[in-house]
Amino acid sequence: MLLYKLLVEWIRLSQPHLLSLDRNTRTGLILAGIFGSYAIGANGIGNVMGFFVEASPFRDLTVGRFSVSSVEQLFLIGAIAVAVGVYTYSRRVMMTVGDGLLALSPLAAFVVVVSHSLVLFLFSSTALESLLASLGLPTIPLLPVSGSQAVVGSVLGIGLLQGLKGVRQIRWGVLGGIASGWVTTPLIAAVIGFVLLFVVQNVFGQEVFLPHDPGLTPSAIESSSGAALLPVAGMTSGLTPP
């Protein structure tokens, strides 16, 4: 919302030519799209492909001075899969966000994409975390965040900024459908995952769960030893030497 106000005020004060404004807006949308793609990749690809890092079938490749690790090859496959998804099934999602929820102007669309991208970047940038830590400032946790929630929140912010007129233009039925998807998606994924793992384990006889025994670390042994000695110390403290 703040970014949108600043841009509107800057346009009002500078009064650029219509053609110049159109050119700058198009350039800004392209750059914002590039930044958004980077932020989605940084935040999303690790959430999906990170589960397969330990089971990666690839080996490190070295060609001259260039080397590609098995993890990088795994992430490359994930990036290709993301690109295929964009070209196949993303159009309806883009139309829902860009026009179905609230009709956006080019300037508003730029603000939405930049805001969404900044949120994803803040929660996925290790460089930013290191910088804040070096300055003695509180760090932002590196956590997976929902890109759909970020972009929908940005669109709603644009609508609320326009006052009562903008609130009336928000299609609340579409918003309700999106929110219901946020609730039902993890439930459906949990059911599908349970069924698939059940079939793999009981039909194909594959092990799908590895019990994890953290063991006793030196600190745990020390703390447990100290806790075990406390009752003994209490019993002996009341004894006096003959």
Rank of each mutant, 00 (worst) to 15 (best):
R91S: 06
L143A: 15
F209M: 03
R91K: 12
P106N: 03
Q169K: 15
Y38E: 08
V71T: 11
A79D: 07
A103W: 11
R91D: 11
I188D: 02
L2E: 09
L187M: 13
A55Y: 10
S105F: 00
V200M: 10
V114N: 00
D213P: 02
L104A: 09
P57N: 08
G136W: 10
G98E: 06
E207T: 14
F35E: 05
G85C: 00
S115F: 01
G36W: 04
R91M: 10
A220S: 15
V82C: 13
P16Q: 07
V8C: 11
A133F: 11
L101T: 01
G163W: 02
V97D: 02
M95A: 13
L210A: 08
L143V: 15
E9C: 13
Y89W: 13
R92N: 14
S105Y: 01
V155C: 03
P242E: 14
A179T: 08
K165L: 09
S115E: 03
L156N: 04
M94A: 15
G234T: 04
A42L: 15
L229W: 13
Y4K: 08
F194H: 13
Q201M: 09
K5H: 12
I221N: 06
F58Y: 13
G44L: 00
S223A: 14
V200W: 06
V111Y: 00
L142A: 07
L61P: 02
G163A: 09
I30D: 07
S117P: 03
L164G: 07
G238M: 13
I34S: 12
D99A: 14
P218F: 01
A189P: 00
L13T: 14
V119I: 14
L137A: 14
E129F: 14
L122F: 11
A109V: 01
P57C: 05
S134E: 12
